[in-house]
Nucleic acid binder design. Structure first.
Lengths: 169, 169
DNA sequence: GCTAAATTAATGTATATACAACTATTGTAT
DNA sequence: ATACAATAGTTGTATATACATTAATTTAGC
């Protein structure tokens, strides 16, 4: 997270017992129960995913957070979004959209215009250069998606179902 | 989360189609397939978990990363650990253990001693105050664990299995 | 023994994040 | 109309992160 994760991952190492995969990866570990292990596993895996992402995006000189903003903007293109729209879609409400947007503007990947109807708000939209950049990244995304296919489609569905249920409390 | 999350989470918003829970939570979203959705879901859920964690730990004036280090040290207590031992258990290899440890030392939660046998290395161990702090946090952890139990034990097992498999590529 | 390589940790620096405080503009109540 | 509240973004600041570089000590080769 932040998840990112690099997320921001936390782990718990309390014992020398070695069990399955997760325990091995973070060295001698024991969890209170499957639920706690699940929470750590989600955060650990998120960090793993985020790192893969970050390194492939690095070649294009953008961070995962910046990539996120660009994709959000492409999603509404050609309609612009105001800053608050971007923030609420970013999930990490803490992350500072103002500064993220400014970074992308400096790179010419998006443009900002004061909205005439409501001068408090700013209309933000992706530029041609931004679209081109995303297209180049998309073209490379194949191998990244292949990595995810170490699980079956049925397992992916099950994973999504369980995660949605976990958050529904 | 940011983690996490605050994790550090990235999302993809490209459409106005509304489907299940994850799509709703990050507003009008459509994914290429279940695999991509799974990756985003893991990172999003990690951020959600990290934020819950961060806010409960804030009352004790420590961050999730610092909490992680303390638990690692408790795990080996009373044997001290060197810095590299802590780093390799932290997963986020980027995070700077030197400075995290220094923060905790300033709070009196751990102590550092130059190792006599090998003066390059530093023996780090949790203090009584550190143990007491962890104990107080443990006492409050019940409700946090309860939150995780919105899924069944079987689902938690399945979640762990799928995540381990996902990373095994 | 002396030099080169490896190990262990600390530091520098640019960027990012968390969170509070602030500015500007618009909406609402009297 | 004026004052007060709500909305939309920006800025300040302390801390954290990423990553490269440096420093100190130990090990190994010759």
């Amino acid at each position: 997270m932040n998840f990112l994760m690099d997320i921001v991952v936390y782990t718990i190492i309390e014992c020398t017992f070695i069990g399955m995969s997760l325990e091995k990866e973070i060295k001698q570990e024991k969890f209170q129960n499957e639920f706690e292990k699940g929470a750590v596993n989600v955060m650990f895996t998120a960090g793993w995913l985020y790192n893969m992402n970050a390194s492939r995006l690095k070649l294009h000189a953008i961070t995962p957070e910046q990539y996120n903003v660009l994709r959000i903007l492409r999603g509404s293109h050609p309609r612009p979004l105001m800053l608050a729209d971007i923030t609420c879609r970013m999930i990490d409400k803490n992350s500072n959209a103002t500064r993220l947007v400014e970074k992308l503007r400096q790179k010419g990947l998006l443009k900002r215009e004061i909205c005439e109807n409501n001068r408090r708000q700013v209309d933000i939209s992706i530029t041609e250069k931004g679209l081109t950049t995303l297209k180049r990244i998309d073209a490379e995304a194949e191998s990244w998606l292949e990595t995810l296919k170490s699980i079956t489609k049925a397992e992916a569905l099950e994973l999504n179902r369980i995660l949605d249920k976990l958050r529904s409390s």
